[in-house]
Design a protein around this nucleic acid. Structure first.
Lengths: 204, 204
DNA sequence: AACATTGTGGTACGTTCGTATCACGAAAAT
DNA sequence: ATTTTCGTGATACGAACGTACCACAATGTT
């Protein structure tokens, strides 16, 4: 049976099993044996491809953020052929909301990782800082360009507004996750926020 | 030794030990033995006052939210003798931010509970819904009154704005927690938000 | 005075977890 | 053809966890 095997691919499969099961039962409740069963391999194999649980978790987080990045940029791209700044930001913020089962899993597991990272040194070094900072920079830039094009209401600070929007989106996401708020109402809140930032560019 | 003992008091002490240790090592890493050691009692006693770990966790959450409620309302009260709507809301939102060690622990442990509640039935029934909804109603009401007094910028929807503010505050809190943002910058973001909601009531 | 109840300590039990070890078949290298 | 390496299975081990059990002293109750 042992034909030569692509390690990277195998590790990805196992990492996806990890994310799936973490999304179902919570990251704290995931054991090596569970991951093995979910991936359809033996416990030994999980050990083989990731020597230790910590390394498995680390790789799982990398994989998760990577997949989410792809998803988010796909959403932005799908926002239109020549998306205006508002459409772009809206797509980005909404992509971060746990609306369907996939993004719900992402949001849940990612937040679980973030909580773990507060006390876990190895996890704290991971992309919890880098990635959101990039998103904030991107939103800031879009806002600034919109501002130069006089598309924004006066008095808007692009930097502060970008940070506020992302924090709000994250907070709304958590609200949806715990069942406090419906996706629709979260979107309404976001839209109202954007309405108050962007000049009402209607002309009907 | 066994003089008659106040159960409620004992339970509170143990619950506080639970919160302390959860704030230090993470809720997921808290065991009955740890709580016992932190509270300075034997494992048996923790079992005696809370029969099961689940009940201990439940009570810990109750205690946590209760203490936070007291803290938040104390902050609002301290916001001035006759606080204006903006001062009130600002005090409330800032109280939810993990600025000092105490509120940091609260935010961390509370978020850990919230994550647990996503998959844990018993926890999901707890005040994760009730409490934030009350806060949102309160902020909405204050905003509405301010609006009637013509203190707000035009075009503000009190309900949506209140929800947005609270979500933003929660999101900023998490950012601080994971070290992505400093408390000062979070406050700056919040203040800018409030500046754009409240009419600039200056007259200098 | 006798007895029941309450508070407390110590410790044992069964499970589960992450990790380590042994074994072995199939391919690659020499 | 032999030897080395790679992929895989099964299983064992020690630690930690939640819980259960047993004993006993101090206090109330009758």
């Amino acid at each position: 049976m042992p034909k030569r095997v692509d390690h990277a691919e195998r590790r990805t499969e196992i990492a996806e099993a990890l994310v799936r099961i973490a999304g179902r039962r919570g990251l704290h409740a995931v054991g090596m044996r569970d991951v093995a069963a979910e991936a359809g391999v033996s416990l030994r194999l999980v050990q083989y491809y990731f020597e230790t649980k910590e390394k498995l978790l680390l790789f799982g987080l990398e994989h998760l953020t990577e997949r989410f990045g792809e998803r988010a940029s796909a959403r932005v791209r799908a926002a239109g052929d020549r998306p205006g700044p508002r459409e772009m930001i809206e797509a980005l913020l909404m992509a971060a909301l746990p609306t369907d089962e996939d993004s719900r899993t992402f949001h849940f597991v990612y937040t679980s990782y973030a909580i773990l990272a507060v006390t876990d040194q190895a996890l704290a070094a991971q992309p919890f800082i880098k990635n959101p900072d990039a998103a904030e920079a991107a939103v800031t830039q879009v806002l600034q360009q919109a501002q130069e094009a006089a598309l924004l209401e006066p008095g808007v600070d692009a930097q502060l507004e970008a940070a506020g929007l992302l924090a709000m989106s994250a907070g709304l996401g958590t609200s949806i996750l715990v069942g406090q708020r419906s996706p629709e109402s979260a979107i309404a809140v976001l839209d109202h926020r954007l309405d108050r930032i962007f000049r009402t560019g209607d002309a009907a």
